[in-house]
Design a protein around this nucleic acid. Sequence first.
DNA 1: CTCATATCCGACGAAATCACTCGGATATCG
DNA 2: CGATATCCGAGTGATTTCGTCGGATATGAG
Lengths: 146, 146
Amino acid sequence: MVQLGRHYGTGPASLAEIAAEEDLPRAYLEQLVVSLRDAGLVSSTRGAHGGYELTRAPEAISMADVLRALEGPIAPMLCATDDPEHGILCDRSARCTVNVLWVRVRDAVTGALDSMTLADLVPPRTDPATATAAIAPIQPTPLQGA
Amino acid sequence: MVQLGRHYGTGPASLAEIAAEEDLPRAYLEQLVVSLRDAGLVSSTRGAHGGYELTRAPEAISMADVLRALEGPIAPMLCATDDPEHGILCDRSARCTVNVLWVRVRDAVTGALDSMTLADLVPPRTDPATATAAIAPIQPTPLQGA
DNA sequence: CTCATATCCGACGAAATCACTCGGATATCG
DNA sequence: CGATATCCGAGTGATTTCGTCGGATATGAG
């Protein structure tokens, strides 16, 4: 998650912290982080004052890596997957001309995802004092207004 | 569907025909074609010898049009949709830095989809010799089973 | 040592979506 | 009339997604 990018270099961050900042249930994050750890993107420290940390610098983690870790191989259709392992040939494969379309879409997606790293999504930590004030609800946001 | 592109110009094609060629349940296609008709991509002729026909040439129908008709607005996440109408602002919108990622992904997808038309997916009917096996120099409408 | 703080683990549950079905009404050609 | 089609809308079943729950295990501080 982006929050982990924010904390990079400042020691491990506990899920309780992140849950508070992201406003998501801790138990849910717990589940997500398992995938990230299995993918080798984060490391964990158990016990008091423990938490999670990025194993690499945010600049070195592409969003494609993150998404693959969280949601599996990138594939608009299961017949056009990133990962040769989980590729499933549909029985129509012979006469199916649509496959090339999905491959193109997939390549477009992976291209976009590869072009961005975690660092691109970490809000610039310019100045903590202006943080709260800068995000003042002056935005018109017509839909779903509180 | 692609089959409709194949039949373009040869009069309406019934769902029963298409179902046989595509090996999909007729009742299911019936449902899909409703969306295509509502989107103005196909026109229908009722009664015996009726069926469906493309309203435009395959070259003039982008796959983005088809996909939007079938699956709604193109959006990897509901906060990054094609269609301003169905856009839903999540409550995190202010501090959410991830949105730009989804917008990029969406643009990549629509770009890929816009770059292909139905005609690109219609198997070339110019010359049967380029098919899997060149058999007859005539035009016996290949692939049609019995 | 003990206790609070965390990660770890596995299973469960509700809600939405996807692919597909069913039954029947209506229009058109021969 | 009757066969062939589209039209229409409600319904089912499997899978996925988001989120929950309860408890076991590891670690640092007092």
